[in-house]
């Protein structure tokens, strides 16, 4: 295996049963991604972007074929191993931010580190550093319902990045944001990608995001129809 390839997807098929029949969400997908990529899975709604992202994040299992993420076959991971993989190596950013409503911004970002059983001082330092990356140190004690959409998504980015994961999977991260916030978020993620060499995989159909991508994998009806290196 090429040591640089941290994601290898091989003839991946994902079917969803619909009563007696099934719906094929992903059809024979194969690609690989190297460390430090800033890659987008691009395509219309229903093209399979989120399904692929979920499989790469070990949140779902392929029906056939396999995805090997950081040397681990998603298909053969137990629930516990999948949780371990997500906990240690993968950060998630969701379209609807998915911040935990009863926690403060600080506590939301701190959460991943608590799961990793980091010490208090180490946590505090890492959380404040992550909040400074996204420019929200002044909102550390705010609750999610006191934040704007852009701020909430920046907190989600900080939460995904605080544990310094090898891969960040972002599902339509700008779908609920205005143009200015979308650009800010993408620039923040691009900066982190360049500084920390974190691999970013986006599921998006937002042109604003696409303009920042280094690689664009175009999906349609569950198939890869194009795979372009952009710069």
């Amino acid at each position: 295996m090429d040591n640089n390839k941290i994601i290898i997807v091989d003839n991946l098929i994902k079917d969803y049963s619909m009563g007696s029949s099934f719906f094929r969400a992903l059809n024979d997908i194969s690609f690989s991604a190297k460390k430090g990529e800033f890659t987008g899975l691009v395509g219309p709604s229903g093209s399979g972007k989120t399904t692929l992202l979920n499989i790469l994040g070990a949140l779902d299992n392929p029906t056939q074929g396999d995805a090997v993420v950081l040397g681990k076959s998603v298909k053969s991971l137990s629930h516990k191993d999948a949780a371990q993989l997500r906990n240690h190596s993968i950060g998630f950013i969701f379209q609807t931010y998915n911040l935990l409503p009863v926690y403060t911004v600080f506590e939301n970002v701190e959460f991943s580190l608590l799961l990793l059983k980091k010490g208090k001082e180490e946590r505090e330092e890492a959380v404040m550093k992550a909040l400074s990356w996204v420019g929200l140190t002044n909102k550390a004690n705010s609750r999610p319902n006191q934040l704007s959409g852009g701020e909430s998504q920046r907190v989600a980015v900080a939460r995904a990045m605080v544990k310094n994961p090898e891969i960040v999977l972002a599902d339509e991260p700008t779908a609920n944001l205005d143009a200015e916030n979308s650009h800010n978020i993408i620039r923040t993620m691009l900066k982190l990608n360049e500084e920390l060499k974190t691999t970013f995989i986006f599921a998006t159909h937002d042109e604003k995001v696409i303009s920042y991508l280094h690689r664009k994998i175009v999906l349609n009806d569950g198939k890869i129809v194009n795979d372009l290196i952009l710069n």
Binding site: R86, N87, H88, F92, N98, L100, S112, L115
Partner: peptide, 8 residues
Amino acid sequence: TLMALGMT
């Protein structure tokens, strides 16, 4: 979200 963050 908790599952995505790594909780079993």
